[in-house]
Amino acid sequence: MRRFFARLRPERSESGVFDELPEGVRPSLLFAFDGFLNAGSAPRLAVEHLQSRDEGEVVHEFDLDDYYDYRGRRPPMVFDRDRYAEYDRPSLELRVHHDDHGAPYLVLSGPEPDFRWEQFAEEVHEIVEEYGVELVIGLGAVPMGVPHTRPSVITNHASRRELLDRKNLFRAQVVIPASIHSVLEIRLGEWGHDSVGYVAHVPQYVAQVEYPSASVALLEAVAGRTGLHFDLEELRLQQAETVADIHKQVEEQDGGDVLANLERQYDQMTRSAVEPPLVADESDLPTGDEIGSQFEEFLAQLDRREPGTGE
């Protein structure tokens, strides 16, 4: 196996960064990537919320030249009249954070690797062993036929069934596109390390805009699983504002008829299905065109807003 410790800051192995943990307790590692499983930007918002409360310390930086497709996902750059002024260099970093009670944990975040997934998994494996990580937790989000007026649903998966801590609403066997989330979980399990994942279901009609409801659900799942303490008040305020905006647009567009149909179908599915499909009966669900036409103006209004102003 390749060794990557040269990229770790040398002092970390001797710094005792996890000395404050009780004897026999090992840290958890959370990971969230911008890429395939990022509907509603929910994993990114979750990480940004954690970093807003504790910036953390970078203890490992991945060499993105090994993993990133610069031509496929060109980073933004500022051209100022007659010169290139700023380059927003992408980064994939591992940070040590502390929860509201001072307990340390690790967060790996940044763009999802485009290349060399097996090499990346090996590098993460080295980190897991170097820091004595007890549990690796992946955060993801997918667009689904669910209404925003219902509690956010989480699908739980794990490298071992004994690690599951909740019963999944959707339990069908399907073929899906692979992601680095799934490859990491499989490989870490093969190497004897426990790994779990939480995937939030985001209403498909808002999957392209920020959806804090799913971020709250993800962090609540992590807190319940690990015992870490996160103050989610600010994120819940964002959640309430976003839901209010969505509901207002729904009422203005069609009086809520499409949403009401979706709610009825969703409620029927959750009540009656023992082995429900991943989506409800397509003959009864609103079509993509129907949903798109009802929310087109809503999404356009969000795109026109000034960042951070809410206007």
Rank of each mutant, 00 (worst) to 15 (best):
M1V: 12
M1F: 06
F4L: 13
F5H: 01
L8T: 09
R9M: 14
R9T: 09
P10E: 07
E14H: 06
S15Y: 08
F18C: 04
D19E: 11
E20C: 12
E20R: 13
P22N: 07
V25A: 00
V25L: 03
R26E: 13
L29M: 10
D34G: 07
D34V: 11
G35C: 06
G35L: 10
F36I: 05
N38A: 13
A39S: 14
G40S: 10
L45S: 11
A46S: 12
H49L: 12
S52N: 14
G56Q: 05
V58M: 05
E61G: 07
F62P: 06
F62M: 08
P75E: 11
P75T: 07
F79P: 01
F79V: 11
F79W: 15
R83P: 01
Y84G: 09
Y87C: 11
R89Q: 13
S91E: 14
S91Y: 02
R95L: 02
H98S: 13
H101R: 12
L106M: 04
L106D: 00
V107K: 06
V107T: 12
L108T: 09
S109L: 08
S109M: 09
E112K: 09
D114F: 12
R116W: 07
W117P: 03
E118I: 13
Q119L: 14
E122N: 10
E123A: 13
V128Y: 02
V128P: 00
V133N: 00
L139H: 07
V142A: 07
V142Q: 01
P143I: 06
V146D: 07
P147V: 08
H148F: 14
T149I: 02
P151A: 01
T155F: 06
A158D: 04
A158T: 05
L163Y: 00
D165F: 00
L169I: 04
L169A: 06
I176S: 09
S179V: 11
H181M: 12
L184I: 10
L184V: 13
G189W: 01
G192T: 12
G192F: 01
D194L: 04
S195T: 13
G197M: 05
V199A: 10
V199R: 03
A200S: 06
A207D: 10
Q208A: 04
Y211A: 04
P212N: 00
A214S: 05
A214K: 03
A217I: 01
E220D: 03
V222E: 02
V222K: 08
T226S: 08
T226L: 05
L232D: 01
L235K: 03
L237C: 02
Q238P: 03
Q239G: 04
Q239C: 08
T242G: 03
A244L: 13
I246T: 05
K248H: 14
Q249H: 12
V250C: 08
V250Q: 09
E252I: 03
D254M: 01
D254N: 01
Y266P: 03
Q268T: 11
R271A: 01
S272T: 08
P276K: 05
P277C: 10
L278R: 11
V279I: 07
V279Q: 14
D281M: 09
D284Y: 15
L285M: 06
P286W: 02
P286K: 07
T287M: 04
F295Q: 00
L299C: 04
L299T: 09
Q301S: 11
Q301A: 10
R305L: 12
E306D: 08
E306H: 04
E306K: 04
G308H: 05
G310D: 11
E311T: 13
